[in-house]
């Protein structure tokens, strides 16, 4: 077997602590900056609805900010539902192998 993933370990588990190189994203303040940039982008995209004529089929698609609202709420609901599904469907990793 030439392609065994286990033969290709190039992981040096200790290098993070050894050479301690700090990346831009390692600083939580920068992660917050990204978060607020995302929020700003969302606000701008919603406001954009004021400046063009929507060419869509259904009436509700014309509502101000519909797509943003829809995208946010269904994604939120998706994750929360999936979280609950875990209680029903999640088993140990070796469930079928036992």
């Amino acid at each position: 077997m030439t392609d065994a993933p286990s033969n290709n370990h190039n992981t040096d588990e200790n290098s993070a602590t050894k050479n301690g190189k700090r990346y831009w994203l390692d600083d939580m303040r920068n992660v917050y900056k990204l978060f607020w940039a995302l929020v700003t982008l969302c606000v701008l995209l919603t406001l954009a609805d004021l400046f063009y004529e929507k060419h869509v089929v259904y009436e509700f698609e014309h509502w101000f900010g519909f797509f943003g609202f829809f995208g946010f709420s269904v994604s939120f609901a998706l994750v929360l539902t999936a979280r609950e599904l875990r209680k029903l469907l999640m088993r140990d990793e070796d469930y079928y192998d036992r």
Binding site: L38, V39, L41, C42, L45, T46, A48, D49, G65, F67, G68, F69, F70, G71, F72, S73, V74, S75, F76, V79
Partner: peptide, 9 residues
């Protein structure tokens, strides 16, 4: 809008 708000979620 759909995608970026999904990302926000």
């Amino acid at each position: 809008q759909l995608l970026v708000f999904s990302g926000l979620a």
